[in-house]
Write a protein that binds this DNA or RNA. Sequence first.
DNA 1: GTGACCACCTGGCCGC
DNA 2: TGCGGCCAGGTGGTCA
Length: 272
Amino acid sequence: MPELPEVETVKRVLKNKLSGLVIKNIKLNYAKTIEYPLSEIFIKNIINQKINDVKRRGKWLIFDLDDYYLLSHLRMEGKYNFKSNGDLENKHEHVIFYLSDNTELRYQDTRKFGRMHLINKADLDTYSKLLELGYEPWDDQLTVKYLKDKYKNKKLAVKSVVLDQSIIVGIGNIYADEILFLSHINPLKSANLLTDKELTSIIVNTKDVLTKAIALGGTTIRTFSAGDNHGNFQDQLLVHGKEKQACLVCGDIIKKIKVGGRGTYYCPTCQK
DNA sequence: GTGACCACCTGGCCGC
DNA sequence: TGCGGCCAGGTGGTCA
């Protein structure tokens, strides 16, 4: 399940392999992957566009083409595979880009949740999907004052609020558990009751956890991969997926509960 | 404005 | 062995 570190890892691989290549043709096996514009227009416009760069904003990949930006969200299980011409297609490869070096970039998504948008270059700064996003974890404007203001009316559990992409981008279910564990915050605590010290911890640990995860290539859980790379951060996880195991800090047993419909792992002693 | 709930999807797992 | 039901979770839409 790609979160910011996984998307950043994918971005680096794609940028390295795709820069300068031209999309010569495209095959769409699952039309709903294209959310905007209509798939016919999407195909017509993207053919013969050169890939100049690949960027990231939150969990969105942004392909910088000649006349357009291709936005790609991997959602739960989306990933990109590099294949040679003629390689057998698997049934989960929904979009195939035929490239000018006679290779293929294939978008694979087992659960078909991922979506793509092709927008005019002039629209990037005002496009709603990106406009609604909050600050990147390393943005200088991500401060205690900012979080306090955003959280002041949020009675929701902090676990649910840190997943809110309109406040801080890139945190998903796995890293939310890790960040709250390192911050010694109970995931059920109301966001509007967090102290300045706790907000500071969230900011610091968000940066630390995501930075380490990127350095290790993300977290490989079930299906994430980026080209030939598999993440190694899963070895560093302290609570996520550790139900009924001993907490590495205090020895208490890690619990699993549901918060906002999400599976949530925490240590009852470290996160009172 | 806020929060709860549901839909989108498929594969893996579990119990029967 | 086969079947049905549940679970996983990021995001958007709807409704109270």
